Lab assay of single mutants.
Amino acid sequence: TGYYDVLGVKPDASDNELKKAYRKMALKFHPDKNPDGAEQFKQISQAYEVLSDEKKRQIYDQ
Rank of each mutant, 00 (worst) to 15 (best):
G2C: 15
P35V: 07
Y48N: 03
D32W: 09
Q46N: 10
Q40K: 14
D32C: 14
S14C: 09
Y60P: 02
K42M: 09
G8I: 01
Y22P: 00
D32E: 10
Y3F: 11
V6N: 01
K55W: 07
L51K: 02
K42F: 11
G37V: 06
Y60I: 03
K19A: 12
L27M: 12
V6E: 02
K28E: 10
D36W: 10
Q40F: 14
K20N: 12
S14N: 09
P31Q: 08
M25T: 02
D32N: 12
Q43F: 12
V50D: 03
N34F: 08
D61K: 04
A47Q: 01
E39F: 08
S52H: 06
A47R: 01
A26N: 04
Y4N: 01
D15K: 14
V50L: 06
I59F: 09
D32R: 10
Q43D: 03
P11C: 14
M25L: 15
S52Q: 07
A38P: 04
Y60T: 02
F29I: 04
E17P: 00
E49C: 14
L27S: 12
A13F: 08
K10N: 09
V50F: 09
H30Q: 07
G8E: 06
S45R: 15
T1R: 14
D15W: 15
K56A: 10
N34L: 05
T1G: 12
F41W: 15
K33L: 14
N16W: 15
P11D: 04
V9S: 02
P11L: 06
E39K: 09
Q43E: 10
A38H: 09
S52Y: 05
S45D: 06
P35I: 06
Q40P: 04
V6S: 04
D15Y: 15
P35A: 07
L27I: 13
D15G: 11
P35N: 05
S45W: 13
D61R: 05
P31G: 07
V6G: 01
Y3D: 00
N34V: 07
A26D: 00
T1L: 15
K55R: 14
K28T: 08
F29K: 00
L7W: 02
Q46E: 13
D61Y: 06
F29G: 01
E49L: 10
P31M: 07
D15C: 15
G8H: 04
D5S: 10
F41E: 02
G37K: 09
P31L: 07
K10M: 09
A13C: 13
K56C: 13
H30E: 03
Q58A: 13
D61W: 05
P11E: 04
E17I: 06
P31H: 08
E17H: 03
Y4E: 00
A38R: 09
K56S: 11
E49I: 12
R23K: 12
Q40R: 13
L51Y: 00
R23T: 11
T1S: 10
K10W: 06
K19I: 09
L7T: 01
E17Q: 08
G37Y: 15
I44E: 01
F41N: 00
K19G: 06
K20S: 13
M25V: 03
Q43V: 13
K42N: 08
Q40E: 08
Y3K: 00
V50P: 01
K20D: 15
M25G: 05
A21I: 03
M25W: 07
D15T: 14
L27Q: 12
Y48E: 02
K42G: 04
L27H: 08
Y4F: 07
D12N: 11
H30S: 11
E54Q: 13
Y3P: 05
Y48T: 01
Y48R: 02
R23C: 15
H30L: 07
A13L: 01
D15E: 12
G2Q: 10
T1C: 15
D53P: 00
Q46P: 01
Y60E: 02
V6L: 15
P11N: 08
